[in-house]
Design a binder for these strands. Structure first.
Lengths: 190, 190
DNA sequence: CTCTCCTGCTAGCAGTGCTAGATCTAAGAG
DNA sequence: CTCTTAGATCTAGCACTGCTAGCAGGAGAG
């Protein structure tokens, strides 16, 4: 029995190795640099072993994305719980979200622009995803009035997502980022 | 002289042929189906002629994107000028924007998620781009109070962009789209 | 009618994601 | 302790991508 558990453990370790290698490579050189050959070289195995762990490259990106959601959830939670006042919390969470996207652009892309086949707003969505959205939900909850909580959260989230994505490929002037963020938050804390 | 003008005209026609072929192919089968070989076959020329017109595939996508901005500007203008009341105009323009993204997903992608090298919020941005943004600007103008017009417009635009992009790859529940849109608009018409 | 240029083509390169078949290791049976 | 068998891993290759060098062939100029 123990020999099989050792094998299973080694397999799991290698799977983590693949995901972290993909993540680090993407964060340092962008997703274009993450090829199956390059990734195989990085983990010191041949290409086909990747396919014994994941269905394809998209599945690897999805796994990286799930890790990203766990990170994001953690950072949002820290921002939310650091402040008592609900409006200040909203501002802090919004700033944390924007900062996350700015500092980890490749990771953010994997989470939101790529990896379409990741189940999301459904019951079978990975826990990390629900947790990240849950943080936004708890931030918005004290400020909700007439509107539906989920709808309000989704709309606020969309605003943040739009800000960071449009700015990231030069659609918005980089200088006024703070003002736009403040404006968005003010419109959602009333 | 006239012989050279004929050649120039034929060249321009072929260039338009390339762009419209790329656009139609993308809209009917997605950007993954738009390969240089497929595109060459579609216009009944060999691959290398594409490179005598455009620097590469990205440049073709950028040309398609510019066409898309002209379309978007037209639709936004129609929505804006159809209504007299500023708040209703904002709602109409927001709905028109979302409808555009929903009906032309591939075109929308070319405009906002791909084609990074397209000059945007600068002076050398193509006129169609400035026109499209200008429509949003004129819609927001009557509703601006304490905030800066450009910043307010950019933030509203980000909200719209976030809504349509997050919904398009399953990040948001499709059913509540109208409610989110209405909520966003209400937060920006006060 | 000849020469020249230039347009558009064929063929090919380097790289991509992915997979079939061989190989080699290591576990289990006698 | 040996032999067989099964599973994990690798080598080699497929079909495709964007892009380009270098060659034909027909246009225009003289």
């Amino acid at each position: 029995m123990s020999i099989q558990t050792r094998r299973a453990r080694e397999r799991a370790e290698r799977e983590r190795l693949i995901v972290t290698a993909a993540r680090e490579l993407a964060e340092s050189e962008g997703w274009d640099a993450v090829t199956t050959r390059r990734l195989a070289e990085e983990i010191e195995y041949s290409q086909p072993v990747l396919y014994s762990h994941f269905k394809g490259k998209d599945a690897i990106m999805a796994a990286v994305a799930v890790e990203g959601f766990a990170d994001l959830a953690g950072e949002l939670r820290a921002a939310r719980t650091a402040v008592a006042d609900p409006r200040e919390a909203l501002a802090a969470v919004g700033a944390a979200y924007a900062l996350f996207a700015e500092r980890r652009p490749a990771l953010y892309d994997a989470m939101f622009t790529h990896a379409v086949d990741l189940p999301f707003a459904t019951a079978e969505a990975p826990p990390a995803l629900r947790e990240a959205f849950g943080e936004l939900l708890e931030t918005v909850r004290p400020l909700v009035r007439d509107d539906d909580l989920e709808t309000l959260t989704e709309t606020f989230w969309s605003g943040l997502h739009g800000l960071v994505t449009l700015m990231r490929n030069g659609r918005l002037r980089h200088a006024d980022h703070e003002r736009r963020l403040a404006l968005l938050i003010s419109r959602f804390s009333g």
